[in-house]
Design a protein around this nucleic acid. Structure first.
Lengths: 159, 159
DNA sequence: CGGTTAGTTCAATTGATAATGAACAAATCT
DNA sequence: AGATTTGTTCATTATCAATTGAACTAACCG
């Protein structure tokens, strides 16, 4: 079943596809969340498959991911055994997930690497005037600053 | 010519590959910048091709991109007609470019779409109690907040 | 000038990632 | 119980962007 999407649904889907792609997430995640965001009623997987014309497998994985983010919430529908969902409208949850699962681990890994680079470079003579050590230390200061910024952004976007 | 990379160069390349990939840039951009970052001397394109074992075309495009970002600077070398470069160590330039060329245009586009969604939804009866209008307005507030955050982050990362 | 070197461009290839769809498991009917 | 519905998994396929490499232009050289 493929029923035509409303203008509102199309805009919402496009909006969230663009949104999740900035975070490096697959398009289908944005499509699904966009559909839920402007839906008046909870939907089950087969609704998603039908409206978006995507495969069952894709919808299953997308719903699982969004549920994991807390971006959609399971709701029980009386007299229907299919699992239904509705959007959690707190979009910041998706961003927070990106920060915690992607950005922060990468920064931590980057910090380790940077420390390794500094110790490799310092192993020479008079490290105080080694220009490479100087620039690595500047980079480290910058990276630390970036790391400190993330919690602030998270806090700012939350409320 | 493929000469072996030092441990420092490998760490630096990995560091910046991971870095640029968060911004959605190709790996080769990170490799090239990473190589320049820990280099003591300016390098021409054929050095880059040789050290990184990438194609001439890829190096040419990568260098052009990085030059466009202001992340590498052309330097003239006496008695050598090849164009040499050295890194500009202000890494924030690369991030600023991402903000200005990718994030800000997308946010502007998103804002338009959101306004369109709101006007579609308001076209019904008593918009004050339309739950979809309510959530779209909440999203708009959030998006505005995000937009206002970007200049702050840019400023913070600059110095 | 013709030969060589430096660098660009872009069509074709490759590689990485997401989506498909069929096989499967599990729950719910009659 | 068997039949049907619901949902998951994962190997295959499709998609899309990055890289290659060959053809090209332009600048320098002898």
């Amino acid at each position: 079943m493929v029923s035509r999407l409303s203008a509102l649904e199309e805009e919402s889907i496009d909006y969230f596809v663009s949104f999740v792609q900035i975070l490096g997430l697959p398009k289908s995640i944005g499509q699904i969340y966009g559909l839920f965001f402007v839906s008046s009623d909870p939907m089950a997987m087969d609704h998603v498959v039908g409206r978006l014309d995507i495969s069952k497998g894709c919808a299953s994985q997308g719903l699982a991911t969004l549920k994991g983010f807390g971006a959609i919430i399971p709701v029980h529908m009386e007299g229907d055994r299919r699992e239904h969902f509705e959007a959690d409208f707190e979009v910041s949850k998706i961003v927070a997930h990106f920060f915690e699962e992607t950005l922060e681990p990468r920064m931590a890994h980057g910090e380790e690497r940077l420390n390794r680079m500094i110790s490799i470079s310092e192993n020479g003579e008079n490290p105080g005037e080694n220009p490479i050590v100087t620039r690595l230390n500047a980079l480290k200061k910058w990276q630390t600053r970036g790391k400190e910024t993330i919690p602030l952004i998270k806090e700012f976007l939350k409320a």
